[in-house]
Design a protein around this nucleic acid. Structure first.
Lengths: 338, 338
DNA sequence: CCTCGTCGATACAACGTTGTAAAGAGCTGT
DNA sequence: ACAGCTCTTTACAACGTTGTATCGACGAGG
C-alpha cells in the first residue's frame, strides 16, 4: 500500500541508496538523477517509515511525558507545550497517566525502557528517591517540580519556596492577617516547599502560625479544595485569606466560599498556583503564581536532547530554576472600580 | 545498554528464535530450556523493542488523536480517556495538535501515513469533505463530532441537533423568551447542527428568530465567548438567556455578564455544551449538555480495532450516536434555597 | 526394521532504513 | 600515460524482531 524506498528506486531506475540520499539531502547526486528521483517521490507519495528509520538510527523517536491525569488543566496545558517543543526536535510524545499514585508511577517508569523511549519527562507526585534508582534503566529522566528528595537527576522547577512566600506576602500586603493554606500533604514533595514558603512569609511579617489553618488535601482536585475550605470555614475563627497550593484547589475553595455566602475577596481572599486559563476567567478571577510553562516544556525537551545527543560531554545533573511571577487578579484585590 | 534477544540467547545458550518463542508464549519448548531462558530474561531485564517488533509485524502500535489543542479542557479530558481506552488494546496514542485550522489539520493528516499509525481519531474543526478523500492514505479514520459534510467515514457523535434543542427548550421552560446563541461559524460542521437545534426549539415554542441574537465565534475559546457576549449585551434589547455552543464560550460569556453587573441566572441565563469539569465548579455552576465522553473514547478505539483487525469482514462506515444528557445547574435555575 | 508423526530447535530471510566501504567515471597535474 | 584527485553510485550489512522452512530426535505403529 504505502510506497517504500525500493518502490521509488525501481520507478526512478536508480538504487535504493540513491533515493535515500536524495531524501536526506545528500549533496552529490547528479541533477538528472535527482530530478528523476524527485519525480518518482512525488508520484508515489513516498513517506519515510519513521519506525524503520529510528530502528536503524538507534533511537526510538519518542519521549514519554508522565503525568497524573490529562484532565487536570495544568497538565493538559503543559502537555500541549511539551508536544510542541518536542516536535521541533523530531520527537513524538508518549503520554502516560498515573493518577498520581506511587504504584502507577513506579510501574509506568519500569515499563518504559530504552527500547520504547529516548527519554522521559516526569511530573511525579508520590515517587520516593529509591524508586528512581531502580527504574527507567538508563533513559535520561527530567523531573518536573522541585522535590525534597535528593536524587542525581535533572530537575526543572520554579523556586517553590519563594513563590509561595511571594503569594502569601501579597495577601499580607493587602491587609490579611488570618491566612490559611490548603494543600498540605506528607507525600508530595512540592507541598512541603510551598508550606515552607507560607510559613516563612508569616514569620517575616510577625504573624502567628496556627496549625488549624493548614488544611490537608489528598489529591489536588477541585473537590479537595472545596472540602478543605469547608473545614476552614467551620473554625471558630475562620481565615480572612487562603493560599491554595494549586489553582484547582483554589477553584474548589472559591466555590465553597460562595456557597456559604462569603464574598471573595471582601470576606476572604484567595490565591492559587499554576496560572491555569480557568483561573483567569473564574468569577472572581484568580490571583495566582504563574510559572513560565513554555520555558519548563522547552527546557525539559532541551535537556533530554543534550543527554541523548552524545556530542555533548556527560554533564552533572542540572537543577534549572524557571521564572515565575505573581499574577494579581480579583480574588485578592477585587474588581477595580467596583 | 539495553538487552536484546541476542544477548539473552547467548546467555541462555540457545538460539535467538527460541528466546523469541519463549517470550511469545510458544508452546513447544523443553522445560529445561524454558527455565534457562526465563532466568536469562530476568537477569538481563529484557524488554522487547516495540519498534522492531512492529516493523516486523507490519503494524505501528500507534493510533493518532488529532485535536485542536490539549489546553482546551474538553480535549484534555477526552485525550485522557482515549489513552486509557487505547492502552487496553495495546495501543499507544500519538497526540497531534492543529490549532483548529484547516491548513494544519490537512498537513497533519497528510503527514500521518500507515507508516506512522494504525488508525486515527480526528476531532476536526475545519476540514472539508474533499480533504478526507486525498489524505490519510488507507488508514482507518474515526471522526468525532457529527458533521454536515458527507464522507464515507466512521462518525461518532451525539445527536447535536437534539442536544441543542434540549438545551434551548430548557431555557424556554424556565421562562426565557429572548434567547441568544453564541458559536455560529460557517466553517464548523457542528455549529450548523447546534444552530439548527436552537432554531427548531424556538420555532417549536412559537418564539421569533432574530438574527442579531446569533453571535459568531471564530474559535471556541473563553475570550471568544466574552467578546460575543459584549456584542449581545450592547443590543438595544439584550437577551435574557444565551445558549453557548461549548462550555468555554459560556465561561467567557459568564465573565462578561458578571463584569457588566448582571446576575446569572436572574438577569441572564446561560447554557453550555460539553460538561467540562470547569463548568461544574464555576460560580454559578454551568448548566450544560453532557456527552458521554468515556463512551466516545471507547467506541472510537473499538472501531479502529475492528477496521485493523482483518478478521472482521469489511463493514460499511458507521454512524454511531452516543448518549448525552442535560445537566441542569445554577446558571439557569440559580442556587436552590437562595 | 522402517516409516510416519509429533515435538523441539535452528537458520534464514524479511520488515524499511541508513552507514560504510568500495568501485566506477571523469577530471587535473605531472 | 599515470597517479591522484573529486564526484557519483551502488552493494552490503546492520538495527531487533518474527514467520517460514527445515532439520533432527524420539516414540508409536506396521
Amino acid at each position: 500500500m504505502a510506497a517504500t524506498l525500493k518502490d521509488v528506486a525501481t520507478l526512478a531506475g536508480v538504487s535504493v541508496k540513491t533515493v535515500s540520499n536524495v531524501v536526506n539531502g545528500y549533496e552529490f547526486v547528479k541533477p538528472e538523477n535527482r530530478r528523476r528521483v524527485e519525480e518518482a517521490l512525488a508520484s508515489t507519495g513516498y513517506r519515510p517509515h519513521v519506525g524503520a528509520r529510528n530502528l536503524r538510527r538507534g533511537r526510538t523517536g519518542f519521549i514519554a511525558l508522565v503525568v497524573p491525569e490529562l484532565s487536570i488543566p495544568y497538565f493538559g496545558e503543559l502537555a500541549g507545550l511539551v508536544i510542541t517543543a518536542a516536535r521541533a526536535q523530531d520527537w513524538n510524545v508518549l503520554i502516560e497517566q498515573t493518577q498520581g499514585t506511587r504504584a502507577q508511577e513506579r510501574s509506568t517508569l519500569a515499563s518504559l525502557g530504552p527500547h520504547m523511549i529516548d527519554g522521559a519527562i516526569v511530573g511525579p507526585e508520590a515517587l520516593e528517591a529509591e524508586d528512581f534508582a531502580e527504574l527507567a534503566g538508563g533513559v535520561p529522566l527530567v523531573m518536573l517540580g522541585e522535590h525534597a528528595i535528593d536524587v542525581p537527576i535533572d530537575h526543572i522547577a520554579i523556586d517553590n519556596v519563594l513563590a509561595a512566600k511571594t503569594a502569601v506576602r501579597h495577601l499580607i500586603e493587602t491587609g490579611r492577617r488570618r491566612i490559611a493554606a490548603i494543600g498540605q500533604n506528607p507525600h508530595r514533595g512540592t507541598a512541603a516547599l510551598r508550606l515552607a514558603g507560607y510559613r516563612a512569609a508569616l514569620t517575616e511579617a510577625g504573624l502567628p502560625m496556627r496549625d488549624e489553618l493548614v488544611a490537608t488535601a489528598m489529591t489536588y482536585h477541585r473537590s479537595d479544595g472545596a472540602q478543605a475550605m469547608e473545614t476552614l470555614l467551620a473554625l471558630p475563627e475562620p481565615p480572612d485569606a487562603v493560599f491554595c497550593f494549586n489553582d484547582l484547589l483554589a477553584i474548589g475553595a472559591l466555590r465553597t466560599a460562595t456557597e456559604r455566602g462569603l464574598r471573595v475577596p471582601e470576606d476572604v481572599a484567595l490565591v492559587g498556583f499554576d496560572n491555569t486559563d480557568e483561573g483567569a476567567y473564574s468569577v472572581p478571577s484568580l490571583t495566582t503564581i504563574a510559572p513560565d510553562k513554555g520555558a519548563i516544556a522547552r527546557t525539559a525537551v532541551e535537556l533530554i536532547r543534550r543527554r541523548t545527543g552524545g556530542d555533548d560531554d556527560p554533564f552533572p545533573p542540572q537543577d534549572v530554576q524557571t521564572p515565575f511571577m505573581l499574577k494579581v487578579r480579583e480574588s485578592t484585590i477585587g474588581r477595580p472600580g467596583v
